[in-house]
Amino acid sequence: MKSSIQRVKAIVFDTFGTVVDWRGSIIRDLSAWGECEGVKADWAALADKWRGRYEPEKDRVRTGEIAWTNLDELHAHALDQVLAELDLEALSVDHRRHINRVWHRLEGWPDAVEGLTRIKRRYVIGPLSNGNVALLVNMAKHAGLPWDNVFSCELFRHYKPHPETYLGVCRLMYLDPAEVMMCAAHNGDLAAARAAGLKTAFIPRPTEHGPGQKTDLEPTQDWDVVANDVIELAERVGA
Rank of each mutant, 00 (worst) to 15 (best):
A134K: 11
A143H: 01
N70K: 13
L128E: 04
V225F: 00
R205A: 07
W22P: 05
A196T: 08
W22M: 09
T215F: 02
F151H: 14
M1V: 07
P204W: 15
K214T: 13
A32S: 10
A67L: 03
R60Y: 06
K160W: 03
I231Y: 00
A76T: 15
A10Y: 13
K120E: 01
V82E: 07
L217V: 15
A234T: 04
A76S: 11
E154K: 08
L88G: 09
D42C: 09
H98F: 07
E73V: 10
A45P: 00
Y174P: 02
A239L: 04
A32Q: 10
A45Y: 03
L167K: 06
D42P: 03
K58M: 15
D94N: 05
H104F: 15
W22I: 03
V150E: 00
E179A: 12
C153W: 11
R236C: 12
L172V: 02
Q221T: 07
K214L: 09
S92M: 01
K2L: 09
C153V: 05
V93C: 02
D80H: 12
K120S: 02
W147N: 06
A195P: 04
I11G: 11
E73T: 08
A234Q: 02
P219N: 06
A192C: 03
R23K: 15
Y54F: 07
W223I: 12
H98L: 12
K2E: 06
H186A: 09
P206K: 11
V12I: 13
A201E: 04
D189L: 08
V230E: 04
A67G: 03
G238R: 03
K141Y: 01
F13N: 09
D176W: 04
V8F: 05
A184S: 15
C36D: 05
D148M: 03
I11N: 12
I27L: 11
I5M: 03
M181V: 10
V39E: 14
A143F: 00
K214I: 12
L198I: 13
L172P: 00
R171M: 01
P56L: 14
E164H: 14
V169S: 02
A191D: 13
A112D: 04
I125R: 00
L233H: 06
D87F: 04
D29T: 13
S92W: 00
E107H: 12
A234W: 01
A227E: 11
F16I: 04
N132L: 00
H95Q: 15
F156K: 09
K141H: 08
S92N: 00
C153H: 07
F151T: 12
D229Q: 13
L71H: 10
E232Q: 14
E89P: 01
W50T: 12
R118F: 00
D29F: 15
